[in-house]
Design a protein around this nucleic acid. Sequence first.
DNA 1: TACTGATTTCAATCAGTATTGAAAGTATTG
DNA 2: CAATACTTTCAATACTGATTGAAATCAGTA
Lengths: 166, 166
Amino acid sequence: MTLEEGKQRFIQSWGTLGSNWGINRTMAQIHALLLIAPQSMCAEDIRTELNISMGNANMNLRALIDWGLVYKELKPGERKEYFVAEKDMWVVIRQIITHRKKKELEPMIRVLDEVAGVQEVCTESEEFCKVVRDLQLFSNKADSALDTLVRSDSNWFVGTFMKMIK
Amino acid sequence: MTLEEGKQRFIQSWGTLGSNWGINRTMAQIHALLLIAPQSMCAEDIRTELNISMGNANMNLRALIDWGLVYKELKPGERKEYFVAEKDMWVVIRQIITHRKKKELEPMIRVLDEVAGVQEVCTESEEFCKVVRDLQLFSNKADSALDTLVRSDSNWFVGTFMKMIK
DNA sequence: TACTGATTTCAATCAGTATTGAAAGTATTG
DNA sequence: CAATACTTTCAATACTGATTGAAATCAGTA
């Protein structure tokens, strides 16, 4: 496989993957492109490489910056902005986990806490509360597990954690 | 909060959550409804409770059965099918992890393996291969971690694993 | 076999997101 | 300050995937 084929395949797949992941396709593609770029790129470079509109590129670059996956880079003497991806994969993964946790797990925990207030006065409400309690148990555990994971460093994850779980 | 309010809140939220999760809204709502139902329900019960069409109910029930989250139940002397949710939360979570892993992680691993074949002959290809290798490292680790998690039992998860990670 | 009630399928439609592109905004330069 | 180079916004549009409902299919029953 040539570099050009590999790049194309990687960018396209990252985009598709992104969508099965709740992340929008263009955002994932820009991320892929910057990840494998040996140096920073400007909006125009990205726009032409991916064949997307200015507006789209801009919005998704901002989202990536917001996620902490891409940084702006200003070149001295140049007016336009350049962009670089965070290349430390452990940081990348941590940011993704943090964002997905916020979007997927935390709202669930809030809802469970809310509905946990139902009084157990009949078979139906007992069943309801039991389900809610079970879900709370697991979601709180998952929440703290992910917190620990995010706070820990790469070596700990790859080394200790993985040995433990084997 | 009354039972009725709690139920509504739970079902609606589970639906919304479902969509930030890559799971379709109706599928998540049906699942929520069956989870908290004290006994099995038929398609018509579900249809009226959630105000959805026959076709929709049928398709999503099928998907839930496919995910191993809901079972058919045949009542003797009754022609129509009833449905019950898997109530063991550990099983539920395992099934969800298994399915999401298949949809989100495994395709990524396949793509990485494919593009890992690029020859390192210049700065650009070196950068590319480095990124791919880093991603492979983490995705393979995550893959085996999730396998272990899915194979392990509830007590181990809640007990041992959680103590380790604390 | 014909009838009935239940389930499944699928083309048409709908709704929610993503994308575009033109217009407005901002900052730098001479 | 006006021109230029770039960035951001946002209403209109296009896409994608979810949903409907009518028709087809299936399975018991008489």
